Computed example of a mutant assay.
Amino acid sequence: MPITIKDIASELNVSATTVSRALKNDARISVEVREKVKKSAAKMGYRPNLMAKSLVSSRTDAIGLLVDNLSWSFFSELAERVQNAAEKHGYSVFIYSSQKSAGLEKAGVERFMSRGIDGLLVYATEKEENRAFYSELDKLGIPVLFFNHFLRMDVNCVTTDDYDGTIQAIRHLGSLGHRRIAYVGSGEESSFKQQRLAGYRDGLNELGVEASPHWIGLEEDDPAYGYRKVKAWLAAPADERPTAVFAQNDMLAFGIYRAAAEAGLRVPDDLSVIGFDDLDVCQLMHPPLTTVRIPLKQLAEAAIRFMLDRFAAEAGGEAVRLKTTLSPSLIIRQSTAPLKQ
């Protein structure tokens, strides 16, 4: 016979309620008792009956996470941190990639809902056609939290100040003497990309420099485009090419590094490069990439805390709303250097 919560309670001479709460990491149960219960549960071979639990409580202890593209390291790292934060509180995370498609994004949400998830975390494609769809979800009272400013709707969200992060990056390059600073990335109408481009332009204005359309590349956000675009810039005479490049994301920097190497230039001696996101791989690049760090761990923890608060509110607590912006930070490594005179 399968081991039950009552069996564990009998073994430890505590109530079944205490065991249940301990297995959920409920703060009302002391850390010592929680650890004792978990050790006994593992020793006795306890496995929760999730199907029975969902039938009784109408909850599945599952949260859906919808992201833009799992092939990108940023989203896989975000997913890992969300999963880690959720598991600390006994929740599972189901992940779906929209592959930048509004249709797949909507289909992903519908699949999550059909499987009875308790809440939904979304890094949206920000396509206009899904505005009404998300509005309907909000009316149904389904807990939804966005990781971006989705279509400027009044939604629950936890985001980062990408504008300020880019300003920090441009100021850093300016402090090193750079004025011919290029921007490479995608021109998609997403909020974070608009913020980064605005930060680039305003950062240059602070330096007394007008942004040159020639040094703004807005076609794609992958390494291959970074390579092609920067290679074209570096083919110009030395006094007509950029001395520094701001990459809209860290992955673009791989292509920029290759373009510089093929042009016979060294990073950072001849070309400074700065990225955005601070992916784990940045420290392993040669040279290690200077970048703007998005606080993924804090984003994930804030998102899961919101979900827990919403679940508590549904059980009789106060209504919960969240709209917060976290600050990114500049991580200076070895891909930026003073301008050569």
Rank of each mutant, 00 (worst) to 15 (best):
Q195M: 15
C282A: 01
A247Q: 03
E87N: 06
I216R: 10
K323L: 11
V33P: 12
V230N: 03
E126V: 03
D269A: 00
E126I: 01
T325G: 12
D164T: 11
G45S: 13
D309N: 15
D68W: 13
P338T: 10
A263P: 15
Q168W: 06
T17V: 12
L137V: 10
D202V: 14
A315F: 13
I256P: 02
K127E: 10
A300Q: 09
L55K: 05
A263F: 13
A85N: 10
D154Y: 09
A300F: 10
T4N: 05
S101P: 00
S98Y: 05
T166A: 14
H172W: 08
H89S: 14
G316V: 09
F246A: 05
V122E: 00
T325F: 04
G45D: 11
D118M: 14
R310K: 15
L65A: 09
F146S: 00
L299N: 13
A261C: 14
T324C: 04
Y96R: 05
Q334W: 01
D26R: 12
R111M: 15
D162L: 11
L234D: 07
Q248H: 13
F276V: 05
A102L: 07
T159F: 00
P237A: 06
I63A: 08
Q195D: 07
L279Q: 02
E35C: 14
R305M: 13
L234I: 06
A198Q: 10
G187P: 13
V281T: 04
I216F: 10
L176M: 10
V281N: 05
G203E: 08
M251P: 03
P287E: 01
L140R: 15
V184G: 08
V14I: 07
G203T: 09
R293Q: 06
A259M: 03
S190I: 15
Q194M: 12
K323H: 13
P237Y: 04
V209T: 09
R201V: 15
K297T: 09
D239R: 00
A312F: 08
E77R: 04
R333K: 01
S73I: 13
I331M: 04
D161M: 11
Y227T: 13
S329D: 04
D277G: 03
A235S: 10
I332H: 00
D221G: 10
I331C: 00
H214Q: 02
E136P: 02
S114Q: 13
P295G: 11
R179V: 07
A253D: 02
I170E: 01
T125F: 08
A85P: 14
G64F: 04
P223N: 04
R59V: 11
R115H: 12
K229Q: 15
S186C: 05
F74I: 14
S71D: 11
R34V: 15
Y123Q: 10
P242T: 02
S327A: 15
E126A: 02
I304R: 07
D309C: 11
E301P: 04
F146E: 02
T243W: 02
I5P: 03
L70Q: 00
V245H: 02
Y123A: 08
R196S: 08
Y257C: 09
L120D: 06
A169T: 00
D280V: 04
V230F: 09
A244C: 00
K340G: 02
A259N: 15
I304F: 01
S92Q: 11
L197N: 11
V93K: 07
I181D: 06
E206M: 07
K6G: 09
W72T: 01
M44G: 13
F311P: 08
R201C: 14
P328I: 03
D118V: 14
F306N: 11
